[in-house]
Amino acid sequence: MSAAPVLAVDAVGHTFPSGTTALTGVSLAIADGEFVALLGPSGCGKTTLLSLLAGLAAPTAGSIAWWGEPLPPPGRPFGYVFQAPTLMPWARVAANVRLPLELRGSDRATAQRAALAALARVGLAEFADAWPRELSGGMRMRASIARALVASPLLLLLDEPFAALDEFARNRLDDELSHWWRDAGFTAVFVTHSIQEAVFLATRVVVMAARPGRVIADLAIDAPFPRGPAWRASPAFATLCADISRRVAAAAERAA
């Protein structure tokens, strides 16, 4: 890998045409292979930042570089898991998962093989031929994760992918995501409301505050991998969570 960070966010601000300033002065450098959790209250600009990182919109202030380039390079696919499942209702689950590959010119048979493998990874192998409406909310979210993983992205952006799931399903998927990340070696930016989820998954937690959205803390989580249920049950985990929660509360007080 080149020396340039995967993402270099420099003094980025974003103001919508409506006048709402969603972000101000956000600077971040994300290195290859990091797992960054973006943690913050609702409305602090997490989704906005993620869409800027994906190149879906241009920041109104500051700049972003991808692998040292001013534009997202076409050859390096992103995976993006939206906050809502965003499946095409007119296509079966497998066809939805195939989409990124087919748009990039893969032939159908190759794409189908990769889609079935990705669906198997998220535990939806037997739903490949189902229609999206036949899945539960959590299953739809998993299909959308399979779609993000299918093109073996170098950078995976996830917007609260498990927020709608029950705690057991969420913990299980967190365990699996952690394994996929270690196996595939992609760089991940994971948006979440949950301190526990952030501490469980991430090598680094970036805490944001609202109005205007900005970064208030940037902490390394040094616990070794693989992480599993034992990590979640350890005293170190509880200490870290309590520490972050204290900092978030303090920052909120300072802001108020």
């Binding site: 994906a54 879906l56 076409p74 696919p77 939206f82 809502a84 965003t86 989409l99 748009l103 990039r104």
Partner: peptide, 14 residues
């Protein structure tokens, strides 16, 4: 068109 799907297509350089 669902704006999310539109983003998905843009992201994949459709």
């Amino acid at each position: 068109v669902d704006p999310g799907l539109r983003d998905l297509f843009r992201l994949n350089r459709a």
